[in-house]
Structure formats: structure tokens, C-alpha cells
């Protein structure tokens, strides 16, 4: 297990290094000058040069990348601004804040959104999917399958405003979406995120319903399940001890990747509900030509996906004894 983890973590580090290098190069391939935005209306060449120097973008590209990379391990000194302690993901000249500080500030919103919605879609998605599999071919199965097909083809940017209109603006059943830290006011945290959770969960529940159903149906037709039945085990035992465990493997894999993506920021959801999470931060960084911030968000997002994959691999082996950590 230890060897597995060390090997995967080293692989993850290399993956993140490649992602950061590619992001860095791609950003500079776009013919936009980050210094221009800070140069005011009457922008003379001298002033532009001064800003570039202050931003550290007058160095050769490899040097800039090295400065950024080494900052993660040893920190960086920004002339006139101060020291950015390790791990330093850079300094945003747009927000005038350290990238790590901003990412830390935004992460709880994204994490709350991801965790809350995943609880809802896992419970309802897996539950409905299992029910549909058990009642395969019957009315319940058909209703669940049809409903999930409809829901999974919907988009946040459509369902979100409709939900807001119906549940918030018209009927006032639920609160206006907003993020309040859990530690500050748990009730406000819950009510403020309920609409985004439900909307996000509606679409993801549909996906998990379909996946769970198909996995369960497939597993229930496996030889070992038939053997278990033939041995006279109860339906409940067959279902939960054998079939469910076998079907969960692929679902865990998908969930791990989905969580990584959600923790990296559900951009459209955050934008639809005006939640200031990592997704919105990424969008704004692109609009503002804010390379340090974009790079920071990209790295954090990529780290979540990579880590989620490692966790999934480990959990997979625990769920399915047939899998061994090679």
C-alpha cells in the first residue's frame, strides 16, 4: 500500500508540473498584455515597462516559470509589496492579494457546494438506481429511467434560473442563494445553499440513477450472484452483500473524479447562483488576464482531480477484493 501511494504521489507531482507548465505557456501564447490593464488611459511605453517590471513579466518566460515554481517551495519576495511565504502560488496584481490566500478564501464556498450537493445526489441517485434495478422492467423502473433521462439532459443555466424564479422570487419558499460560513451561522449556511444543492443534485442524481441502475442490472446477471441465489441466500443478502458491492466499484471511480471536478469549482453553478467559489475565481481570472490567479486555481483544481483519483484507486481495492494494488 505504501509503495502504491508513494508511486502515485510522485506521478501526481509530475502531472501537476506538466499542467502548470502547459497553463503557463498557453496563457502567454495569447496576445494579451497583463500590464496594459494597469497602465491607465495615457499609457506611455515607459510606464508600461515600469508595470511589467513590477509584475515580474519582463523576465524571459522560462525565468518567470522558474520564479513561480520555486516560490511554491521557498517563497517569493515581491518588490514594494512584501514577502510571499512558501507555499507561494503567486501574487495577483489585479486583486492585490496572494493567490493562496484568495484560493483559501474561496475554497469553503466550493467545498460546501460540492459536499452538500454530493450528499443529495448520492442518496437519491444511488437509491433510485437500486430501486429501478430491483424493479427492473416494472413501472417504477420505467418512471425512474425516463425521469433521469429528462433530468440528465437539463443544464444548470436553465434549471438554475427556473428554480430561482419558482422557489425564490415567486413563492419565496427558499432563501436567496448566498454563502455564509458554517462556523458563523449553520442555519444560514444550510438555507443559503439549499437551492444550488438541489439544482446541482437534480442533474447529478439523474446521472447516478442511470449509472447505478445499469451497474446493478449488470451485476445481478453475473454468475456469482446467480450462484448466491442458487445457494438459497435471501434476496436482501444477495442484493446488498454481493450485487451492490460489485456494482459500487465503477460508481466510486466516477464519484471520485466528479468530486475532484466539483471541488475545483462548479463554474456554471457558482455563476448562476452568484456564489464566489473557485469556479467564479477562475472565470474572473481569465477575464482579467490574471495569470497568477488562474495558474493557482488551475493547480488546485488539478490537484483535487489527481488526489481524488489516488483515493479512488485505494478505495476501489477495499470495495472489490479482486482488485489488488499492484
Amino acid at each position: 500500500m505504501l509503495r502504491f501511494l508513494v508511486r502515485r504521489l510522485l506521478g501526481a507531482a509530475v502531472t501537476l508540473l506538466i499542467i502548470s507548465a502547459i497553463t503557463f505557456m498557453l496563457f502567454y501564447a495569447v496576445p494579451r498584455d497583463p500590464a496594459r490593464m494597469a497602465c491607465g488611459k495615457v499609457c506611455t511605453p515607459d510606464t508600461l515597462e515600469l508595470i511589467r517590471h513590477n509584475m515580474g513579466i519582463d523576465d524571459p518566460l522560462p525565468q518567470q516559470y522558474w520564479n513561480w515554481l520555486s516560490g511554491i517551495f521557498v517563497g517569493r519576495d515581491y518588490t514594494g509589496i512584501g514577502n510571499c511565504n512558501a507555499p507561494c502560488l503567486g501574487y495577483s496584481f489585479v486583486n492585490h492579494e496572494s493567490v493562496l490566500g484568495t484560493v483559501k478564501d474561496r475554497f469553503p464556498t466550493t467545498a460546501s457546494l460540492a459536499l452538500g450537493s454530493s450528499v443529495v445526489f448520492l442518496i437519491f441517485g444511488i437509491g433510485t438506481g437500486m430501486l429501478a434495478a430491483v424493479k427492473q422492467g416494472k413501472a417504477l423502473d420505467k418512471i425512474a429511467s425516463s425521469a433521469s433521462l429528462v433530468a440528465s439532459s437539463m443544464q444548470i443555466y436553465f434549471v438554475g434560473p427556473v428554480a430561482l424564479y419558482l422557489l425564490v422570487y415567486q413563492t419565496h419558499l427558499l432563501d436567496q442563494p448566498a454563502y455564509t460560513p458554517f462556523t458563523e451561522n449553520p442555519a444560514a449556511w444550510f438555507t443559503g445553499l439549499l437551492v444550488p444543492w438541489l439544482v446541482l443534485a437534480l442533474i447529478w442524481t439523474a446521472n447516478y440513477t442511470r449509472m447505478t441502475r445499469s451497474q446493478m442490472v449488470e451485476t445481478l446477471s453475473e454468475d456469482y450472484v446467480r450462484t448466491a441465489r442458487a445457494k438459497g441466500l435471501s434476496q436482501r443478502t444477495v442484493f446488498f452483500r454481493f450485487a451492490w458491492r460489485g456494482a459500487m466499484g465503477p460508481l466510486v471511480t466516477i464519484f471520485g473524479i466528479d468530486m475532484g471536478v466539483l471541488l475545483g469549482g462548479a463554474m456554471i453553478t457558482e455563476k448562476t447562483f452568484s456564489l464566489q467559489g473557485l469556479g467564479m475565481l477562475a472565470v474572473k481570472s481569465v477575464i482579467n488576464n490574471d495569470l497568477p490567479m488562474l495558474l493557482g486555481v488551475m493547480i488546485v483544481t488539478a490537484a483535487f482531480v489527481v488526489l481524488a483519483n489516488i483515493v479512488v484507486d485505494a478505495v476501489y481495492a477495499m470495495i472489490d477484493p479482486r482488485i489488488r494494488l499492484a
Partner: peptide, 23 residues
């Protein structure tokens, strides 16, 4: 100052008589 480059520069030009007032 070198960190206030976003602002207007009309008065700076007239107060120094230079199109590059920071010089």
C-alpha cells in the same frame, strides 16, 4: 509613484512639463 500608474496623468504632465512625468 510607480504603483499608481492606473490613475490620470494630466496634472503630472503639467506640473513637471514632461510627457514622461515619472522621469
Amino acid at each position: 509613484a510607480d504603483f499608481t500608474t492606473e490613475g490620470a496623468t494630466y496634472a503630472q504632465v503639467w506640473l513637471t512639463g514632461s510627457e514622461e512625468p515619472r522621469k
